[in-house]
Nucleic acid binder design. Structure first.
Length: 622
RNA sequence: GCUCUUGUAGCUCAGGGGUAGAGCGCGUCCUUGGUAAGGACGAGGUCGUGGGUUCAAUUCCCACCAAGAGCUCCA
């Protein structure tokens, strides 16, 4: 869901007004069916609306038909939306009588409405909206009549926490979609169907790109051979960029001692979202000898008193230790250490999904250690890298988020003055870059603010991909230094950056972005040769060899199918180029070229085709 | 982690208290065909796992595991 700016929230568009009204129609219907229900809030959202409801009966999709039927009655009755202004006391009286978010007085108060009343600031006008017998505490605005809600559909039901706080009680959230008219609604529903077809989980299975196996573990991606080709190409691509930009590639292990992460702060701050520590055998034996119970062990782990290793949740501490492995002079800086580093995080089970949210993933990570005066330029370099990487892949539909700390939270480490410096540095950089961006409080990492590149998946969920982060804190924690021109010790500044973010998430989104039709340079199978009959198999083999010699990933279709069927299969496999070869081609040393998206491209000589495709691949053409 | 839904052949799905079906895919054979499906035959399933109810469970109930949607979280 995209976040609304303050202005957008205050100024409800026509369609939002309609959707909000439709939420009231839904609420009216629900109250007619279940008069004891307690209503919470029901705002418009992208493409529709929801209403939060507390109710003993668990609403399931089987109830949707009845709800929609009741809604249709409300719409047909064409009730007027009537706005009443009331005093706080009057509103409270109504709520106590159970008369808010209800069709009549009830024996129990409207508890959520009573609570929401308290959230309305003193002095603000309190309004009630009525349609027919239904009345609700509501700031509005609404459309004129319920009859305006012509095109809607109840979509789903899920639990949500009241007011979005996981400490609050859980309510049932009914989602609906609503459009101006039937045509737009149908278009939207069709779009949802289309989107499902390019879902990376579906395409990933169909195209044999990756698998997830229960026996291996939730959220752990198995890259199959074809997916691995894509990953290798992406890695090669990024490595070339890094070489050009003066990065040094490093390799570090997948685990590190707990103390390393105590120093960095990861272990204490993110206990809940890490795989449990790997405890040394001797330590376990000793604990057992001491009669340590499971409860004791649990306490020891909680307090972090244990010794052992952690699967690394981040690469920075390892890179920091590489920086710190030799004395550094200001002349050496910036030191740019890059690694395709695999990290492990214990994400909540309900969060996992496909390749976009996983428990083990590889970041195209790098850490830049630089002089304070180099920070601005280095950030620029990183942002440019992210932009160019996304641009090469044609992923230009992203938004840029300046993620700042929430001043009211205490989860952040380090000196506020350093935070201010880092936030300003990023703000300056993103301004210079000349892209639109939004500043969002509370989105920062615990050690520093960041610039995030955010893209949406096929169902509209947003995911953070590339990120650039400025960090004054970890150098402090690890007591990093360099020798300055004044021959004194100084503290470097760190920049964390990852243009893809994680290869898993990025590849997942890339699959959806291309709907499986990868550009030739990324396609696992770039060319399929389709002989018309066995009579030309020799020529087909010759073509295959010629392509393979030029580094093209080619497959010769030796099945007994007719060309029509061979083409169909190649199309379904989304192979960019199909070479149809028959006796005509064999005689002339030619190939008949068909492109998966462009169709029949006619005949050309084998040599010309090879030259053209090699060029296309080298260009990384889209 | 929370709520709801789902789990039947490799994939998409139908079925239903009396030990299972379709299409596609796969295998063998026939067919050598010119830009999205040629034909015949055949092999695949402890119906997610474990309990319970029952003469009988894949079907009903419970728990667990996993997936999906949303919420919360996301270094």
């Amino acid at each position: 869901m995209s976040r609304k700016t303050l202005e957008q929230r205050h100024e409800m568009s026509d369609i939002e007004r309609l959707r909000h009204s439709c939420a009231h129609v839904l609420a009216t219907a629900v109250m007619r069916i279940w008069p004891d229900a307690q209503l919470a809030g029901g705002p418009p959202v992208d493409n529709g609306f929801y209403y939060d409801i507390s109710l003993d009966h668990a609403i399931t999709p089987a109830d949707f038909e009845q709800i929609e039927a009741e809604m249709k009655k409300v719409v047909k009755a064409n009730e007027t939306f009537e706005r009443l202004t009331v005093s706080r006391e009057e509103a409270a009286e109504l709520a106590k009588a159970g008369r808010l978010g209800a069709l009549s007085d009830r024996s129990i108060p409207s508890k959520f409405k009573l609570d929401m009343l308290n959230d309305i600031p003193e002095g603000e006008e309190i309004s009630i909206f009525k349609n027919g017998d239904f009345q609700d505490l509501c700031a509005g605005p609404h459309v004129g009549r319920t009859g305006n809600c012509k095109a809607f559909k109840v979509m789903s039901v899920a639990a949500a926490y009241y007011k979005g706080d996981s400490d609050n009680e859980s309510v049932q959230r009914i989602y609906g979609t609503c459009f101006k008219n039937r045509t737009e609604l149908d278009e939207h529903l069709e779009k949802l169907e289309e989107a499902k077809k390019r879902d990376h989980r579906k395409l990933g299975r169909e195209m044999g790109l990756f698998a997830i196996d229960e026996a291996v573990g939730q959220g752990l991606i198995l890259w199959k051979p074809k997916g691995s080709v894509i990953r290798r190409e992406l890695q090669n691509f990024i490595s070339k960029q890094l070489d050009a930009q003066g990065y040094s590639e490093v390799f570090t292990p997948h685990i590190g001692k707990l103390d390393l992460y105590r120093t960095s702060g990861h272990f204490p701050y993110y206990q809940d979202s890490q795989y449990p520590p790997v405890i040394e055998r001797d330590v376990i034996t000793k604990l057992a000898d001491e009669g340590c119970s499971c409860a004791d062990l649990h306490n020891i782990l909680e307090k972090g008193e244990i010794e052992g290793f952690l699967l690394k949740p981040m690469n920075c501490p390892h890179h920091i230790k590489i920086y710190d492995s030799e004395p550094r002079s200001y002349r050496d800086l910036p030191v740019r250490l890059a690694e395709f580093g695999t990290v492990y995080r214990w994400e909540q089970s309900g969060e996992l999904g496909g390749m976009t949210r996983v428990r083990g993933f590889t970041q195209d990570d790098a850490h830049l250690f630089c002089l304070p005066e180099q920070v601005a330029e280095e950030i620029q370099g990183c942002l440019g890298l992210v932009k160019s990487v996304l641009g090469t892949l044609g992923m230009n539909d992203y938004r840029v988020r300046l993620s700042l700390r929430d001043p009211d939270s205490d989860k952040y480490v380090g000196d506020p003055a350093n935070w201010d410096k880092a936030e300003q540095a990023l703000r300056d950089a993103v301004t210079t870059l000349g892209v639109d961006y939004t500043e969002e409080l509370g989105e920062a990492a615990f050690y520093g603010p960041k610039i995030d590149f955010v893209v949406s998946d096929v169902i509209g969920r947003e995911w953070q991909l590339g990120t650039v982060q400025v960090d004054y804190n970890l150098p402090e924690r690890f007591d990093l230094s360099y020798n300055g021109a004044d021959n004194k010790s100084h503290r470097p500044v760190m920049i964390h950056r990852a243009p893809f973010g994680s290869l898993e998430r990025f590849t997942g989104l890339l699959i959806e972005h291309f709907a499986g039709h990868f550009p030739t340079w990324l396609a696992p199978e770039q060319v399929r040769i389709l002989p018309i009959s066995d009579k030309v198999i020799e020529f087909a083999e010759k073509a295959e060899a010629a392509l393979r010699e030029n580094g093209i990933r080619v497959v010769l279709d030796r099945t007994a199918d007719k060309v029509g069927a061979k083409i169909r299969l190649a199309q379904l496999d989304k192979v960019p180029y199909m070479l149809v070869v028959g006796e005509r081609e064999a005689e002339a040393n030619q190939v008949s070229v068909r492109h998966a998206r462009k169709g029949d491209l006619g005949t050309q000589s084998l040599d010309d085709f090879v030259t053209a495709i090699v060029d296309e691949i080298n260009q990384r053409a889209l």
